[in-house]
Design a protein around this nucleic acid. Structure first.
Lengths: 245, 245
DNA sequence: CGTAGGATTGAGAAATATCAATAAGTGTGG
DNA sequence: CCACACTTATTGATATTTCTCAATCCTACG
């Protein structure tokens, strides 16, 4: 597998400059990429934690269910994301992974981390930082779920999605594709599909957003950011303390 | 500073066996320990992210506020915890740290991580795993906040606290001290102080818990675990893939 | 013994859920 | 290109959960 097609190299290059050695190390970790249809489950809560995945194409999400059927979607995954990282710490997967549309994933085994930790302190620092930054992002989401009203939560979700898409796509405009049903948005934000419907309608009436098919246009991004006291964690990473190589 | 008094060594020994080299590496990282009174703020949201702290004694919590004053407590810290780890990834602290009672902390600089990453792949793997496991814990809390009712959230909080206290204190009974006001519990669970009061009374009436001063006795732990579909993440860490040294 | 912070209680209001019906899309087979 | 089946979105009516505000009660402590 050459550098061109290594998902990990692409992902990590967004944060630090990788030299040739790093690129080779990373590229060697990956297994062959795999395609999946829309609406399939790739692994389930409770499966042995074995592989990680880098998303090459398409959207997916991870969720957990309560015994009575209530569902919480925990993370929405985009191209460039590493899926399954938190579960590295545990013996079993803690979520179920499901595709929102057709996707391509690059799997690599959890044991690859061992290689990285032994061979490159710098890459290790980067992986650690990505994990910890994701933790901050979860804390932000927690704040939204604990203390924000429906409209603010929707605003937060949209801003977070845009900020993340802009990591890999610099000239993102104000319009995003949102391949999620309102039930799924509700499961992500701790609300019902019905209330998501009403909230989106209200936000459109108030001129915050505009909906065109499965696309969403942000009309007053600054106002939404104020409303949610939004911080772009993806732009604030501190790589200054990383070891040299 | 000898091993006896190194907070980090004590903390990390709960997970893997540390040889003499590891112990020395870790002990050398720590600065002198510091005491703080009850009700003081040790650092604030927005401060430069410079130090981490290991808790030697006492309870504290981290929180963030919304501009209009709504507050979300994000983490309750006990003896043995590492505080400020997620902020390592960023240039600034994302929360404010406040004591619930008199505490003793062992600070060590963020730059110590550089040393660990360069010198010990095994310790690096452990730190990474602790960070990632904490992420899973946040995901569990997110699920509670998004999809559980007040009583279930309280149950979840109590079970999580007990599980954590049992890491360091093996023969923990069914009774814990809870040095938090009902307003703080509310800020943690995304509810109001008033509703916490009513919920605790209800749970006591139903025989789930018993309150004696600032102590809480769990009467039907299994039922509470069923109610919240509780998983003890602290007992399920996978250290099998860690590098040798 | 007075005071202050915390807990409890009551009444009413707001936010969100639930249930059920209808409308609007969307893809498929003919 | 049409008609059917199916999923998704919207709407209305009502129920539930939780919040808000204000009063009162406790309890620890100077």
């Amino acid at each position: 597998m050459d550098d061109q097609s290594s998902c990990l190299v692409t992902k990590l290059s967004h944060y630090i400059t990788l030299d040739e050695t790093h690129r080779e190390q990373l590229a060697s970790l990956e297994k062959a990429e795999r395609d999946f249809e829309e609406g399939v489950e790739i692994y389930q809560n409770g499966d042995a934690a074995r592989d990680l995945y880098v998303v090459k194409r398409g959207w997916l999400f991870s969720y957990t269910d309560l015994p009575d059927g209530r569902r919480q979607i925990v993370k929405i995954h985009h191209p460039g994301d590493i899926i399954g990282f938190p579960d590295v710490a545990l013996k079993h997967m803690t979520t179920t992974l499901r595709t929102s549309e057709a996707v391509t994933l690059c799997p690599f085994p959890k044991s690859s981390l061992d290689v990285i930790l032994r061979e490159s302190p710098r890459l290790s620092a980067l992986l650690l930082s990505i994990g910890l930054r994701d933790q901050v992002v979860f804390i932000d989401l927690l704040r939204a779920m604990g203390r924000m009203k429906a409209q603010e939560r929707v605003a937060y979700m949209v801003l977070d999605l845009i900020a993340r898409l802009r990591i890999t796509n610099r000239r993102m405009t104000d319009t995003i594709r949102l391949p999620l049903t309102q039930s799924q948005i509700g499961d992500y934000l701790g609300l019902t599909n019905v209330y998501i419907s009403r909230t989106l309608i209200k936000m459109e009436e108030d001129g915050y957003i505009q909906r065109i098919g499965d696309r969403l246009r942000i009309l007053r991004e600054d106002d939404l950011a104020d409303m949610t006291d939004f911080n772009n964690r993806y732009a604030d990473m501190d790589t200054s303390w990383f070891p040299e190589n």
